[in-house]
Amino acid sequence: MTDKEFNICVDAYADPVYRFILKNLKQEEDARDVVQSAFEKMWLNREKVINETAKSFLFTVAYNLMIDHIRKNKRVQLTESFKEEIMIGEGIAHGFKRELELALDRLTTLQKSLILLKDYEGYSYDEIGKITGLNGSQVKVYLHRARLQLKTYIGKPENII
């Protein structure tokens, strides 16, 4: 991968990776750090990475960095979960989309990542499996379970205005 190809990847994939990470971490600074680290890794491995696999490589590296970051900051996450309760109350007043985001935050990191990778980027089950370290069947099962949980949460009358 040349520097020009690398810059093209920055233009093409920096925003999707950033959205994916930001939706999971809910912290802009942390999401930026993860994105920057992912691109740095891709540059360091530029001889192994080709253009066709650059996006998958970036999402895989970003996902692993995000998991590491979450593990390191579990205490911070507990504080954030307390904030989530407040945000849920706020979200009720902002409509269905906000409610969906709140329901999404109630999922596990893996489930949320599966849904985001599927809905945001349109990856197939196998592609998601390569990013998250699962196989296609596992991705399908986990993803359907996550959607049913979302449906159940949204379907409750107390969660719907």
Binding site: D3, A14, D15, Y18, R19, Q36, W43, I115, E121, I154
Partner: peptide, 30 residues
């Protein structure tokens, strides 16, 4: 419809603001 409603649409307005830090002019510079 409830299952279809679980599909999350990407928020296109969210962009990465630090792209200029990621650009590389040449390999030597990096």
């Amino acid at each position: 419809e409830s299952i279809i409603s679980t599909v999350v649409s990407p928020e296109r307005d969210i962009v990465y603001a630090g792209k200029h830090f990621l650009y590389v002019d040449s390999a030597d510079d990096l």
